[in-house]
Amino acid sequence: MKAKALNAAELKYIRHEKMKKWGGIILNIAWWAFLMFPLIYAFLMSVKPPADLYDPNAILFPKNPTLSNFTDVFKVAPVGRYILNTVLVAVLITLSQIVTSFLSAFAFRFLKFKGNKFLYGLVISTMMVPGEAVIISQFLMVSSWGWTDTLMVLVIPHIVSAFNIFLAVQSLENFPYEIYESAKVDGCSDLNFVFTIMMPLLKPTIGSMAVRSFISAWNMYMWPLLTTNNDNVRTIQIGLSMLNAEDSQSMVLMIAGVVISMIPSLLIFVIGQKSMVKGLTSGAVKG
């Protein structure tokens, strides 16, 4: 009899848990639709023929979905060129930030020299200076050099990131000194050690750094807005923001452009999310 009663209680518990589970899924679907609405809306707009915009029966969902907006947007502006420029800038920034961060972190962690701590403190202190607070002087400086309207001006100032140096130094904190020593004993040069032994062991950090650097370079806005004024060097963000979206035709084209511009950063984010989450939260509060 006792066993039977327990069974009933168990059944009730299981049913309760099942309900909670389904409740959770339903809540998540509702919250997802709410939170992701701007992105869903953008996607639906991008496959809408311009005529559908004024159709009261096609407010959200297009009546005759089309992919022509995605090809037409390349005709109203040199979007291909914008994307090429942005890929070039973002890849160069990402690669050079990874290299400069680990070279610096190696020196800070493994090489003894005068002023090591002071210099590291100085590098870290630049994180407190918001970019917007120095942008006037940076702009006046690069324009006095005649650097405006080049891809160089978009890349060079960003090849070093204090935050990524900080991440790299953090990741070396638990790196065994013995590995460095035995590599030296085996006659491995320091430069060789950095690229063939140290960095391969720190792949998760590199992954998180790469995702972060690429996304922030891809989404960069204020600096390219100030320093470039020419379609040949414009990035996708600037190019899109300059599209005229007064009438319905250009509105759907612009949104198609926005959807295209989001694909690379979203892809990189989804692929690298796991390592990025690790890198991000390791620096945060340990609750």
């Binding site: 701007p38 809306y41 989404n219 950063s265 984010f269």
Partner: peptide
Amino acid sequence: ATPMAIASVGMALIFQV
């Protein structure tokens, strides 16, 4: 987590529409 990867420009243009 995806809003992390979205540009302020792209989102602003979507809001504009």
